[in-house]
Computed example of a mutant assay.
Amino acid sequence: MPLTTRDERLARIALTRILEPGDDHTGRWLRDHGAPELLQRLTHDDAPLPGAGPKRLAGLRNRATTARPEADLRTAHATGARFIIPTDPEWPGQLRDLGDAQPIGLWVRGQPDLRIWALRSVALVGARACTEYGAHMAARLATGLAEHGWVVVSGGAYGIDGAAHRATLAAGGATTAILACGVDTPYPRGHTALLNRIAEQGLLLSELPPGDHPTAYRFIQRNRVIAALTRGTVVIEAAHRSGALTTARAAQRLGRHTMGVPGPATSSQSAGVHQLLRGEAGLVTDAAEVIELIGEMGQLAPQPQGPVIPRDLLTPHTDRVLAALPARDPATVHTIARDAATTPDDTIASLYELHSLGFVERHGDNWKLTRQTPRTDFSPNDNT
């Protein structure tokens, strides 16, 4: 009897109970044998599997006895979740860049289409124990990205993750949390309300079946999915041993854009980010700079500049005359003209223009700066 899509889906659901995420060995088994046959080998057959010693195989077969794919599917449906596999239209094609470490399938909780959202998404990650500065920058970037129609992806954790998710939701934007546990098992517990809100307005994703709990290994493997799913990863505060750096390194291996937000040079919480910036990561400080790197050609960030001051509006000739004026003792027109390298007639015309703008004042036939005129450069006649 030929296998159906349902057979494939149920087999992959069972395998999420048996195999750990991101394992290249088990990924090769899945590629070589297909999900139904691999499940059969792990549950009924005594056939060996390449790369699995007797102890490991016994451990996997012991896990296989707990697999109840139909029950997992019912549990997921009760929480509004679904299970998608690589042959589904909703599957994001960029996950194939992970090769044999591609997820077996994904549990998805939320209404939006994952494939569509992933096409225009960016990851914001960083320290759990972040500073106020880090939380502010995460919120600033998330808000800007949301306002420009980008999906903000993070891990649902305390610190930078939570700040990014909350700011995106507050801006009415789209956000996705990729978890290292079941989508029906809020972790951390303190983020239960936040994660439920994300499920209502955005998406929760996980490779792990309902009810599964996180481990250190699963957090690390989760990070590769964040990196693969998005157009780029921004790290906002990360110490040298921060887990957020594993997301950035995965993004670099996959050829995705990697960016970092600089912090104080003396901050240990930014030391890992600064290390990234010394390498191939791009330095970003706002959403426009992120979009310039990951967006379409021509989406350039505006050139940074200071505020426009009245002096900026002067012609170069008039500005030279202004620079030639002394701050204290009044000077003659001929002295000002000489120092400005111009003629007395042109100098008089510029002086009357400057007088109308409040830059200079007249003392008989002589001229000087008003007290309110800011000195922004060196004048040879400035005796102060």
Rank of each mutant, 00 (worst) to 15 (best):
N196L: 03
W150L: 15
L195W: 14
G156K: 03
L205G: 09
R166H: 13
T192R: 15
L179S: 01
A167C: 09
R166G: 00
N196W: 02
E200P: 02
A199Q: 12
A146E: 03
A146M: 02
L203H: 13
T175C: 15
T185N: 09
L194V: 10
V153W: 09
L205F: 10
V151A: 13
T176V: 15
H165M: 05
G190W: 05
A163I: 08
G173Q: 05
V152H: 02
G173P: 07
A171T: 10
P186S: 12
N196T: 07
G182P: 10
A164P: 07
T192W: 14
G144D: 02
W150V: 07
Q201H: 15
T168W: 13
G144M: 04
T185W: 00
I198D: 00
A167H: 06
V153C: 07
D161Y: 11
I160L: 06
L145R: 01
D184R: 11
L179T: 02
E200S: 15
A163Q: 04
G182H: 11
S154F: 08
A170G: 02
G156H: 07
V151Q: 01
T185I: 00
D184C: 13
R189D: 03
L169A: 08
Y158I: 03
A177E: 08
T176A: 11
V151S: 14
A180S: 12
Y187K: 05
T175M: 12
G172V: 07
G159Q: 08
V151R: 02
H191A: 04
V152D: 00
G155T: 06
A146D: 01
H148T: 12
L145S: 02
T176N: 01
L194R: 09
A177L: 12
H148F: 00
L194C: 11
I160E: 00
G149P: 04
R189E: 07
T176C: 15
L195H: 11
C181R: 01
D184V: 13
V152I: 13
V183A: 06
H165C: 04
G162C: 08
G182W: 11
G155P: 08
I178S: 03
E200L: 13
N196P: 00
A167K: 05
Y158S: 05
A171C: 14
I178A: 08
G155L: 08
G182I: 10
R166F: 00
G182N: 06
C181W: 03
L169C: 03
G144S: 04
Q201G: 00
G144C: 04
I198M: 10
P186D: 08
E200R: 15
L179G: 02
V153A: 10
